[in-house]
Amino acid sequence: MKKNRINRLFETKKENIFSVYFTAGFPNLDDTVKIIQELEKNGVDLIEIGIPFSDPTADGPTIQHSSEIALKNGMSLHLLFEQLKNIRESVKIPLILMGYFNPVMQFGLEQFCKKCSETGIDGIILPDLPLEEFEAHYKKNFAKNNLHNILLITPQTPEARIRQIDKASNGFIYMVSSAATTGAGKKVEDFQQDYFERIQQMNLKNPRLIGFGISDHDTFANACKYAGGAIIGSAFVKALQSGNELQNSIRDFTKKITGNTKTTAKS
């Protein structure tokens, strides 16, 4: 089996990994491929493609809104796979699908994993698929298709469970920055540095990316001090809303985030 692109990324790049989330089908139905290509061109290391859901209970207003528009535009999992059919002809960085369990369940989990593998998807994030259900019912299908299931931890996750999640993970661990739904607009002072430090000192086998509330250069750079990198979602979705040409808004956005950081050259 070919090495998963997520593992390759973390082997070659140890810091300042720049990861971006966007909702498929937003702002326009057919923007998906273009957004991915532009993000890669502008130095983004890893992309999370959001599968819109009618009831995104872990998301704040920005991603709720983008999901609602995406669904109105006609986005579905079937269509998303259709759009991504040839994505590996132009894009090399790891791609992750992120969404809620129900649309995947209705698509059929086995079929979903197979499609992901055919498409060149490297990982899945389903926040409402708990570790226990995953291990009991779905793990084999993920493994068979070389897909990593990315699990979340939060400031409230007990240490023993963090160890359990570390053991069950094989890509990276998604560190939710604070007790919150997704949403932009936090400041560096809003984050619990002691949580970041506590996790850093746990010597986990998996690398971590920090997400939720990372929105600008300062919060990105701060998160990067404590983990392999950070994930930006709502702030990017907002940037896409600006109405400018995709190419320009993506270039401006990525520049703004990494601008003054010493990002290591992409390998």
């Binding site: 009618s54 009831d55 369990f101 129900n102 649309p103 995947v104 209705q106």
Partner: peptide, 19 residues
């Protein structure tokens, strides 16, 4: 059958799993 509000139960949904 589907998953909504953290429970696997019967749901009104379309074929894409949107409620």
């Amino acid at each position: 059958p589907g998953v909504l509000h953290a429970s696997r139960t019967m749901l009104m949904q379309n074929r894409d799993g949107q409620i």
